[in-house]
Design a protein around this nucleic acid. Sequence first.
DNA 1: GTCTATACACCGATAGAC
DNA 2: GTCTATCGGTGTATAGAC
Lengths: 210, 210
Amino acid sequence: MATQRRQPRSRPETLARRRDILDAAVEIFGSKGFTGGTLQEIADQVGMTHAGILHHFGSKDQLLLEVLRHRDETDVADLEEQHIPDGMPLFRHLVRTAFVNAHRAGIVQAYVVLSAESVTDDHPGRDFFQKRYETLRAEVAHAFAVVCAERGVTAPETVAAASASILAVMDGLQVQWLLDPDAVDLAAASEFAIEAIVGAVLSPAPSPLS
Amino acid sequence: MATQRRQPRSRPETLARRRDILDAAVEIFGSKGFTGGTLQEIADQVGMTHAGILHHFGSKDQLLLEVLRHRDETDVADLEEQHIPDGMPLFRHLVRTAFVNAHRAGIVQAYVVLSAESVTDDHPGRDFFQKRYETLRAEVAHAFAVVCAERGVTAPETVAAASASILAVMDGLQVQWLLDPDAVDLAAASEFAIEAIVGAVLSPAPSPLS
DNA sequence: GTCTATACACCGATAGAC
DNA sequence: GTCTATCGGTGTATAGAC
């Protein structure tokens, strides 16, 4: 269901060309957004005309969808194909991801710009990001369930809020970090927030706000 | 320094017209983004031609800057002009804001789209958002300092990370909520995360990840 | 202060040569 | 598979009438 058509792609040389285009598109869409980036800019970067891009991908919308799918495959390859961490290792993996991201501003920016842009009306990437977050929330929630089971406690009803919050804080910190890298320590802040949220689920404290 | 020119604005009728345009621009930029939204759409909504908009604001970039400034004044009026909450009341105010936002999807979407779009190259709103986050982080950090002083403890070095994280989790939850309002409870999750982070600063627990 | 008209540039997409 | 040429549409901004 995830990979519908794969073999009808012909020559291996063509596949390499497509990958070049996808890499260029990530860079352009990341620095200008999907609406702001143009096929002309992507074509220039890969040494083609914009007509060549359309020959390979049909339309600008379709190119975006393949960019998002490509990023997911490449980025999650070491996670999906090896094996998905679960339980406490998943939270450690998320922290490690934040540390890695602190050295990949380009990739982070593409993700931040495109995910936020996707909430606009009729954005071609909307469905992708909605499903992506749904999947990620479920994975984090499952990790919480595993950890709670290990400790012999039933998972509290705060798991749903905590799962969304962990993804949210990682995304939100990326925005602040991209705007002002010197003012925000992406890795340290992500680690602190994730530990705080995980801790709040495992040992609920009385609300400090009341 | 914040309000450079204010009196050279002539008739009161003109000022009302400008406000109409600003309101329309918030809606269009919110639903289509700054790059995607057009002066034509804004003009249609307010019953003018796009030339009329440019007469009032000079350029599209300038219009965006005045939209952001206008939103800040309107939204923070009840907070800035009355008095800025500090200490624990500030955190309660942030939670209350999340509850209010859950009924203002349009405003939230404009903020989410424009803030993320502002990290793109040469975006006219970049400086605004960079300074905005800088100010907000300082206000939250000050509230932490006040609360710590009230309890007779010196503010820990986790305050910087916690301040950025609180703003980040609120922003990130808005994205997930806009993409899938039924799957994410914006108010409840924001409250949970803020309490978790505040709690982690006030009573540091050993890292659950180690 | 708002309009019409227009200048000027650019975009995405298609058609057809090579 | 890539190019040139082009179409149709749209964008911001300016000039000048009213």
